[in-house]
Write a protein that binds this DNA or RNA. Structure first.
Lengths: 346, 346
DNA sequence: TTGTACGCGTTATCAT
DNA sequence: ATGATAACGCGTACAA
């Protein structure tokens, strides 16, 4: 059956270049039909004589023919692919979105291509354009790109759906998280527990979502509680590192930029012998999969990650179909009270 | 300068379809030259008169011309892209590889496209072929694909580099982890601590890397210690769930399929009030970034993740250049003794 | 129903 | 140095 029966009596070479390119023309010649007919058969066009179709199919099978996606894309003017650009694949938050997006798009036979801008925040715009040019649509999550850049780029990125930020004055659809509401809920929760001196472990300074949180915090802090802002970051390691300085100040509760940071801080506090929540309360943001299992389980603002992917796809699909996408959604996080928060120590 | 100066007096539409396609032909017409010349200018061909080049550049600038990657790929016969297929983006292990691969390939102006086979293990082969056909090379990590399938597919995937598995009898380069050695080190460590009854939290049954571990364990167990094999999985949640059954049996140490699982189990044991390592020792595999911070820090077999990406790229590059890639590497994990292992309770 | 011929947007090979 | 023109591999009017 398979051609590897001769394995064992020699090395089977891994051909860097196929023996001879098998194109639609070759199949046509072998099957004794025109290329148009082959094309029709391959695309399931029903109006071809069954005998011809058979000949084509067996020829294609025999030659191992597979239409070139590139040539196909050029002729069709579409690729059947969408791309998503994320700032950090390591963040479980994006993994959730990616998963949902893959599934939703997959149902309509669209494939998802993931591009990670990683640390090259500098090249974020380049990557976005490049990714977009190779496919039919883009889901863009670029928290560090300036509004200026985004306005400039938007026309070249369409059809495009924005995640976690908006582009006022344009019709570019966007899915956002109501960070302010989430922060308010967390603060209210902490205040109700008697906390009055809070620390905020800030995310990347250039990130819009960090700015949103900071603004909400400052607004809430007015005449209500003391707020200490500590530069931190977005990763577990960042949170872990900054936790050392927590005891330098007189705070009783910590609001982390996100769950990863909160987790890192939680871990470090444990190492330092500081009990959570009796000596210090701590909250995160996002509700990524495993923070419900940390010790203690993390109180956080739960973002409905699983809804973002599908919603993004629907809007992208509308745009690609020339229709008007549904209105933007501003997801409201749900306060998830768990074990990492408790009454403020007297 | 920018055309968004009129923002504010109306909605700027997000054009699903660019106003008019600006192709190389249009630029040529506007600049008053042939398409060939435009192509030359765009590709930095030095032998074009400077005045013509100027005209072309300004025309291109003015029209916002950007060569179509698809058409370009078709004409050139190469895309400038490589793909990597991973079974689970959520596993930090792959994120490490992806990162290294992105950087290495990026230095030679190749972009990385990530495809996640997610739970569609069934479609893994399809995805692999699809991904490969759209670019110039593939880094494949498909732990659940059968050898049969892989042998069958190999020719269509070349140039291709395998991660975590080999294809004996072929010249397909592969980068593998010496799971057996890692397991042996972990076992030896546990035995030296006096443990004689071990549990193994098995990964996905269909995964080759799981089979490798199991084999190594059975080999080591011969007349040395008792081995209990518990079906588990590959995620944090899997480990968390299975930990409940750990106390049903009389084991003193646990070897988890990977760090994620170990972490999950660790977390659950803590909830159950079982102290690690005094009552139970536990080890993981991989050494993903944050397990050094868990409580207690996890003893594990450290895999040099950061080396995999670059090594994979070098081999892929060789293949694409028609050269013979360097020999395969069988990475030997390094035993990382931390706080999650201790003397067996008497 | 089938084949012919052209278009998709670009690069490369020739003449000139 | 520049411009026709033929690839690249495929889809699809249109004609037959």
């Amino acid at each position: 059956m398979s051609n590897r029966s001769q394995r064992g009596d020699g090395e089977v070479p891994a051909p860097a270049i196929p023996a001879e390119r098998v194109t639609i023309g070759l199949v046509a010649k072998v099957a004794g039909v025109s290329r148009a007919t082959v094309s029709r058969v391959m695309n399931g066009n029903p109006r071809v004589a069954e005998d011809l179709a058979m000949r084509v199919r067996s020829a294609a099978e025999e030659l191992g023919y597979d239409p070139s996606p590139v040539a196909r894309s050029l002729a069709l003017g579409r690729t059947g692919i969408i791309a998503m650009l994320v700032p950090d694949l390591g963040n479980p938050m994006f993994q959730g979105i990616l998963h949902g997006l893959t599934d939703a798009a997959g149902e309509q036979d669209y494939r998802l291509l993931v591009a990670d801008s990683n640390e090259n925040l500098h090249e974020e715009p380049v990557l976005a354009v490049e990714a977009r040019r190779r496919c039919d649509g883009l889901v863009l999550c670029a928290p560090r790109m300036t509004d200026e850049q985004l306005y400039e780029l938007a026309p070249r990125l369409a059809p495009c759906v924005l995640i976690n930020r908006e582009l006022p004055g344009t019709t570019v659809p966007s899915l956002t998280i109501d960070f302010a509401a989430g922060i308010r809920d967390l603060v209210t929760h902490l205040l109700s527990l008697g906390h009055r001196r809070l620390a905020y472990l800030a995310g990347p300074g250039t990130s819009v979502s960090n700015r949103n949180r900071v603004e909400a915090l400052h607004k809430a802090a007015k005449n209500t509680f003391e707020l200490l802002e500590l530069p931190c970051g977005a990763t577990f390691a960042d949170g872990h590192a900054v936790a050392d300085h927590l005891t330098d100040h007189d705070v009783t509760a910590v609001i982390a930029y996100n769950d990863l940071v909160a987790f890192g801080a939680l871990s470090r506090l444990h190492e330092l012998g500081i009990n959570v929540p009796t000596q210090m309360s701590i909250v995160g943001f996002d509700d990524i999969p495993f923070v419900r299992y940390t010790t203690p389980p993390l109180t956080t603002a739960s973002v409905p990650m699983d809804r973002l992917g599908p919603e993004a796809w629907r809007r992208l699909w509308s745009l690609m179909s020339g229709e008007t996408p549904e209105k933007n959604v501003h997801f409201r996080p749900r306060l998830e009270v768990r074990g990492s928060t408790g009454p403020a120590p007297s």
